[in-house]
């Protein structure tokens, strides 16, 4: 939003309600995460943990989207800014893949 632009009452209201909506969803996701973690701990420990972990990662990514998009207002910024924030994440994704690949290799080399 450019500086000096004063929002109208309708804009203001929709902004505030968007924020609370995002808060609601983030809170809900966190609660669901915790509840599922607890259920898993009690009853589902025999299932492969990767299912649970993938869920956690997706849920956290969703929360991150809410924070960046709604709280940090990126959703309403120009596309160029969004892209300039998103593109460098490719490097991080590759770094995560490469580093955990390597971590796995060390695990193997140490003979575990």
């Amino acid at each position: 939003m450019s500086r000096g632009h004063v929002p109208s009452d309708a804009e203001y209201k929709s902004q505030v309600s968007a924020v609370w909506k995002a808060t609601f969803w983030m809170g809900l996701i966190t609660i669901v995460e915790v509840v599922i973690a607890l259920i898993w701990m009690k009853y589902l420990t025999d299932y492969p943990r990767i299912i649970l972990n993938s869920f956690f990662i997706v849920a956290s990514a969703t929360k991150a989207f809410f924070i960046i998009g709604e709280f940090m207002h990126l959703k309403y910024e120009k596309r160029a800014l969004m892209i300039s924030m998103a593109v460098p994440l490719i490097f991080l994704v590759w770094a995560i893949i490469a580093f955990s690949w390597e971590g796995g290799a060390w695990h193997h080399m140490r003979g575990y």
Partner: peptide
């Protein structure tokens, strides 16, 4: 913040790599 995100990511990636490499 983007650059700081890289600092934090480096820490978290370190965490990940060390965690999977340990027994």
């Amino acid at each position: 913040l983007l650059s700081d995100a890289f600092t934090f990511s480096a820490f978290l990636i370190t965490y990940g790599a060390l965690r999977v490499s340990n027994k």
